[in-house]
């Protein structure tokens, strides 16, 4: 088991997938580093991170089984 990462909107397009499982990511900053080196275009891309359906603005420890989502700026309506 690892961390489930969901991608949405433009981010899903850049990553060419809507989800993947990542292991050995102990916190949000590490996760961002892993993702940024995998998908270089995301480095300059603005997004929010939600952990288990809640948006956090600061680094946080991740646990196995957490659902992380990378959310580009919302554009509903």
């Amino acid at each position: 088991m690892g961390i489930k990462v969901l991608y949405f909107g433009r981010i899903a397009e850049i990553c060419n997938t809507t989800s993947e499982i990542l292991t050995d990511v102990r916190d949000v900053d590490t996760l961002k580093n892993v993702i940024h080196s995998k998908y270089n275009l995301l480095l300059s891309f603005k997004y929010k991170v939600s952990i288990n359906n809640k948006i956090y603005n600061t680094n946080r420890i991740l646990n196995n089984g957490d659902e992380i989502a990378l959310l580009p700026p919302f554009s509903g309506g």
Partner: peptide
């Protein structure tokens, strides 16, 4: 609300909507 709009053009190309 986490919703995203993809604007699809008549020639089937697209861009992501920004509010």
């Amino acid at each position: 609300v986490p919703i995203w709009g993809k604007e699809i053009f008549e020639d089937h190309s697209h861009q992501w909507k920004t509010n």
